[in-house]
Amino acid sequence: MYEGLRSPNIYTPKVMPELSPIILEHPNATFWAGGTDLMRKKDGYPSKLGEEEIIYLGEMEELRRFQRNDRMIEFGSMVTLDEFLSVARSVAPEVLTKNIESIGGRILTKRITIGGSLGANVIKSSIPGTLAILDASYEVRFIKRKRLHSKWYPISYMNGKGTIPTGLITHVRIPLYERNYQFFKSTGSFVRDKDGAVAVAFVANLEQNQVVDPHISFSYPEIGFITLREIDNAIQSLRFPSSPGETENTLKIVLEMIRQEGKISPLQQERTKGILKEIIGEVNVKILSTPTTGTK
């Protein structure tokens, strides 16, 4: 059945200097991280991939490092979600750990790498959306004039479509800001339920009767993530506790903006609306239950 198929050569560089000659020799080679995206493709095997060489990144120690200080955490792109949770659970923003836990069991999280989830041609996970609202950035190494160069980009520049500059994602950096309200919820599976899955990540500071500096992202399989300053402003303009009328009005505005950005199914619209309602309801409860300082 598979006779005549060419077996791609596997290159396993161990350090960065070994990588550039391989890229120069095989500019169309496929970078192989955890393989969850490549192996999931309908035409994954046998496929045209056989005509390209594979650069396996799993043995590059530099891409597996993790470091932190008071202001940020930085980790290599080959750190798997499972490794990230075991190392950074106590320091990473809660919204990100909740997101990783929502993806599934260790069978999946041990294979999915952070770089792989960012570098896929079409974003198929909710991780990039959550990283975008955390103001995370990623380092890309690329070949220019036969030499490896490096540049950092904010993840929000991805535009949700997974269109990264040509090159290899090597590191991801997350600044550690204090946010006293973090929310993540996903419904449906990003792998199995492409027309119904939704993930919403939200971070903000709750102060008196309003949310300050809110950031929200909506992730949909195949479409990618949607983050808009206008949506953040619409949420910031709400006064809490918000009345059902105000809530409904804001939901309508936000959903309209999402519809303009990407074609989502009616089920995804309903689910997005439900999750947004849940966020507003939760913020209402939190603000109402916060003890206010009385004046004499």
């Binding site: 598979y2 095997y45 496929s47 056989g50």
Partner: peptide, 10 residues
Amino acid sequence: SLNSNKPLSL
């Protein structure tokens, strides 16, 4: 002797 990208299931 296998194709290097053949899945284990196959």
